[in-house]
């Protein structure tokens, strides 16, 4: 145990990866809270899967494999996917969830095709793009962490700045419109931040599992509090906790990839929260129902059947 902490502080690689995963957890937890409250959990899933063709096309067009270039491609593809989902749901008779499913699978499939094509190229430079599928935390270097932290700080600052507007959007959009707020613009900004949070996580967790980092910390945090600010802080904390502990776990178990380990860690937090949280937790609610039944039975006499 002590050795583990020593490694966390003094092992350069492990510290870098843990910092990156922690930063990712904070940003995705905070912004995921709004996605969950707005019932847009699956939008995050669609955006992250849609990032894959963006990454592949960015590489094909530029021949550059640097994180900044590839992640820019991912962000653009995510934005296009969001725009398509909204418009398919708004302009056709296709329902929102079907639109999400279509866009997710079409983009992801196209991304896999491009990835295969790239891998068949006789070019030594092509290796390594497949790490965006499930993430490859171990490959993260200091520069990547700086990019992640920089983007994350921008996202968190905007979240803080437009807190009131985002809350209004999430709770009662129409009411905001009647007060003169341009709710479509506020929606656009919040969704852009969501895309940003996803992009931050792609290197570590990958396109397939990224949505877990948005949804799970928020779902867990909602169990413990009825206050939006506390929920967002708690989700950020859970995200960071899962990020760091998943990284540490993957470093102690050989050949254990960090991305899936992080997702397992955050799922563990969700299970704990759903079971044991006071008031909203399953066990608390079952216990209360049981006690109430006992009391009514004591008052109301024996049950016959």
């Amino acid at each position: 145990m002590i050795e583990l902490f020593n490694n966390l502080f003094f092992d350069h690689t492990l510290r870098t990866v843990a910092l990156g995963a922690g930063a990712l957890g904070i940003v995705s937890g905070a912004l995921g809270s709004f996605a969950v409250l707005r019932r847009q959990s699956l939008l995050g899933d669609a955006i992250s899967h849609a990032a894959l063709p963006g990454i592949a096309l960015a590489f094909l067009l530029t021949g550059n494999k640097s994180a900044l270039v590839l992640l820019s491609g991912a962000a653009i593809a995510g934005a296009i996917a969001t725009w398509l989902v909204t418009n398919i749901a708004g302009l056709t008779r296709v329902k929102y969830d079907s639109a999400l499913g279509i866009i997710l699978s079409v983009f992801f499939g196209f991304g896999l095709v491009l990835l295969t094509y790239i891998q068949k190229q006789p070019n030594a430079n092509q290796a390594g793009l497949e790490k965006y599928l499930f993430g490859q935390a171990a490959a993260i270097v200091e520069k990547d962490v700086l990019i992640m932290a920089g983007l994350g700080l921008v996202a968190l600052f905007l979240l803080f700045l437009f807190w009131k507007e985002f809350k209004l959007l999430s709770f009662d959009r129409d009411f905001g419109t009647t007060m003169g707020y341009p709710m479509a613009l506020i929606d656009f900004v919040l969704t852009t931040l969501l895309v940003l949070a996803i992009v931050i996580g792609l290197q570590t967790v990958g396109v397939v599992l990224m949505s877990a980092m948005l949804i799970a910390p928020a779902v867990a945090a909602r169990q413990w509090t009825d206050n939006l600010a506390i929920m967002v802080l708690l989700a950020a904390f859970f995200g960071a906790l899962a990020g760091v502990s998943g990284t540490v776990a993957s470093s102690t178990i050989s050949r254990m990839p960090a991305g899936p380990a992080i997702v397992v860690a955050v799922s563990f937090l969700v299970v704990l929260s759903i079971l044991f949280a006071p008031r909203r937790g399953v066990i608390w609610q079952r216990g209360r129902d049981y006690l109430l039944r006992q009391r009514f039975r004591a008052l109301g006499g024996k049950k016959d059947v």
């Binding site: 409250l37 009131k164 999430s170 709770f171 009662d172 129409d174 007060m179 003169g180 206050n227 929920m231």
Partner: peptide
């Protein structure tokens, strides 16, 4: 029925939203 009454917020907070229009951008209640 148009809003989610399980939203994590308090009664006072919801009523305060009525003042967001006069508050304007970025200012906190």
């Amino acid at each position: 029925g148009t809003v989610d009454w399980d939203f994590p917020t308090s009664v006072l907070d919801v009523v305060t939203m009525g003042l967001y229009g006069t508050l304007g951008w970025l200012k906190r209640p």
